[in-house]
Nucleic acid binder design. Structure first.
Lengths: 149, 149
DNA sequence: CATAAATGATACCTTTGGGTATTATTTAGA
DNA sequence: TCTAAATAATACCCAAAGGTATCATTTATG
């Protein structure tokens, strides 16, 4: 009952980059701030670029930049790009046809919970995240990972 | 952003058994109704027994029975026995010390969401699940698994 | 135009969750 | 007291997620 690690990483990255939305960030710079395992970070950044949330610039002095206006990127938009969006309409007990055949015992109660979650995730945009600061996006769990690149 | 498959299984099992709370169910009978992969089901049932949610009776004509009054078993109680309880106090971005060092941008909003979830999971007991019926706990995804025992 | 510094692609390794197989133990009842 | 039918324990297997390594490509700049 969490987001996957990968989704958390994506949320951190996008939120961090939102602090300076025009800026072109290199993977190195993001790594320096967020301490996400470097090679995995690189992979994730290309994923986010392919998904359209980021624009990548190749070559020396290249990097990544947020592609749209901050107000147009909701947390759900980010979450959905990392495959962690299953919860959207899912039955509490994990039955695939819950809504269609018979309601399960938790159907209505859980629908309300999901609605609450969805409401927060769709209405909270990076713009709001930016404005909510100052705050720490810095992972200070002394990373066991090395950069190695 | 779901419960794990194992947690879903546990929720199905306990909810199913709550339909007849005094009854001693054999693994076979539960399998016949829920179609959870048989050997995994067996394993899970011993886990639930060790956790105290179920009482197991060994030997021929043995089986499992819910150990307490239905009103004393909340959904959270079940969820916590399958290791899926991380969400309880967890930061939106997955930072371990979010609450202690600096609040993250989502801290308050997400705390409210978690509170909502916790409220539902702690106040909904198996008694309520039982009363909410009739409903289907029957997995009709034509199982690809065989029983094999 | 060579080099350095960046991203892209791809293949591989590791850990964990889900699932299986085998053997041991318990106990009701013929 | 033997057998059948149940649970207990344990070890193993497989797939997916997380993470690493290597090489290729792009491009600013000396």
């Amino acid at each position: 009952m969490n987001f996957s690690r990968t989704t958390e990483y994506a949320l951190r990255i996008m939120s961090f980059m939102a602090m300076n939305e025009q800026k072109l960030y290199s993977a190195n710079e993001i790594y320096a701030n967020l301490k996400i395992p470097f090679r995995y970070l690189r992979k994730l950044l290309t994923t986010l670029s392919k998904s359209g949330l980021l624009i990548s610039v190749q070559g020396k002095s290249g990097g990544y930049r947020i592609s749209k206006d901050l107000s147009e990127i909701s947390l759900l938009d980010i979450i959905q790009q990392t495959g962690d969006n299953k919860f959207k309409n899912e039955c509490f007990f994990g039955f695939h046809d819950c809504a269609f055949v018979k309601k399960c015992a938790m159907h209505d109660k859980w629908a309300a919970v999901r609605e609450n979650i969805n409401q927060v995730l769709t209405t909270t945009t990076l713009e709001e995240i930016k404005e909510t600061g100052p705050h720490s996006f810095i992972s200070n769990n002394n990373s066991v990972f090395t950069k190695n690149d």
